[in-house]
Amino acid sequence: MTILLDAGVAIYVAMTTALIVWVGVFLFLLRIDHATQDVARQLNERTTATDAPPPRATIISNDSATQ
């Protein structure tokens, strides 16, 4: 393990570690971002469906139509 601390190697070890951590953080953020977008979209759709005015129709009976 001490080879990892050698002056010529340590900087590559540090860079690789930093890159691995960043890739992990990035993928985690991307997942959270997707999940958040999904929830926001579903909620929007549900809210829009709830807020929509009820369908209206005029029922005209045969009796009134003939009068």
Binding site: I11, Y12, A14, M15, A18, L19, W22, V23, F26, L29, L30, D33
Partner: peptide, 21 residues
């Protein structure tokens, strides 16, 4: 919309690489 985020990820990866090398 993920294109911008992936570009950001690569940008920061390039910054980390440059910071060390």
């Amino acid at each position: 919309g993920d294109g911008v985020k992936i570009f950001l990820g690569l940008w920061i990866a390039a910054v980390i690489y440059s910071m060390f090398l």
